[in-house]
Simulated scan of single mutants.
Amino acid sequence: MKTPPIVSPEEWEAARQRLLVKEKELTRARDAMAAERRRMPWVAVEKEYRFVGPEGEVSLLDLFEGRRQLVVYRAFFEPGVFGWPDHACRGCSLVTADQVGHLAHLHARDTSLAFVSRASQPDIERLKARMGWSMPWYTMTDGFDADFGVAEWHGTNAFIRDGDRVFRTYFINARGDEALGSTWSYLDMTALGRQEEWEDSPEGYPQTKPYEWWNWHDEYGDADGSRAWLAKLAEVGDAGRSG
């Protein structure tokens, strides 16, 4: 192994500062990409998709759990997948499932996350218990995977709802999925984004000051005003389409 040169602390810091310029360029480019996602057109979901959850059959709208936005990851856990029946796909497990942050922070931005597979609920619950996963995970029963680009490969779809109407807003797959898992990465792919004032968003999009909504994951609730924030989101209506 040919290692880099060994230098003084001053030379090392100078090299880091040079690289930091490129890192900040990358951060700004990532923010600009997220801003373009918030301006993507929406497409209405007209079909009635059905899933099975721990409590029985549910619709795509139910997967929102009453929130405004929904992110859905298609995980491969089913007969024919390497690792079945003890494990889900190694890529889905390492790249996505093991990286998911605490969902309370997404919920505070009125956004839900769900995994979907073709395995039965007893198999999914057994897998979650073994691997220590807690995200909502549903069983697909129809052509949802084929219709949303995830029949033969993993991928993550973002949706938003206006009342009972559901719209697809963005899609990430292939190596794009490896960057997902954190609260910020999921919010950055949604139609409303992080919903903070510094973001470049269309006029009328809900935004609050950064840091003010941040909280410990067990402290979100009426006391910190998150319910008022959800009410504010409800007032936005169809601003995403008009923007």
Rank of each mutant, 00 (worst) to 15 (best):
K2E: 13
L113W: 03
A179P: 01
P210F: 10
R37N: 08
V45T: 04
E55Q: 15
F76T: 04
D218G: 14
A108F: 03
H102V: 10
E196G: 05
L94I: 11
R130S: 13
F115V: 07
D222G: 10
G56K: 08
R28H: 13
L94N: 12
F159D: 01
G101W: 02
K22S: 10
F144S: 00
G155A: 12
T139H: 06
R74D: 00
G225Y: 01
E65T: 01
L20M: 11
T169L: 05
V81G: 01
P54W: 00
L20G: 06
E125Q: 15
G101K: 02
A108N: 11
H105V: 09
V116S: 02
R118S: 10
T156L: 10
E78H: 10
P9A: 07
F64D: 03
D162A: 08
T141C: 10
M140R: 03
G56S: 10
T27W: 07
R18K: 14
P4W: 10
P85M: 04
T111Y: 03
A231R: 14
L61D: 02
E48V: 09
A119C: 09
V43G: 07
G225H: 01
F51M: 01
Q207W: 04
D164Q: 14
A146Y: 06
S134L: 05
L127D: 00
H217G: 12
M131V: 13
L20H: 09
R39W: 07
S8D: 03
G163T: 09
A119G: 11
G163P: 06
T3Q: 15
R168F: 05
K209R: 15
A15W: 07
K22I: 03
Y170M: 07
R39V: 08
R37E: 06
P79M: 05
R165G: 04
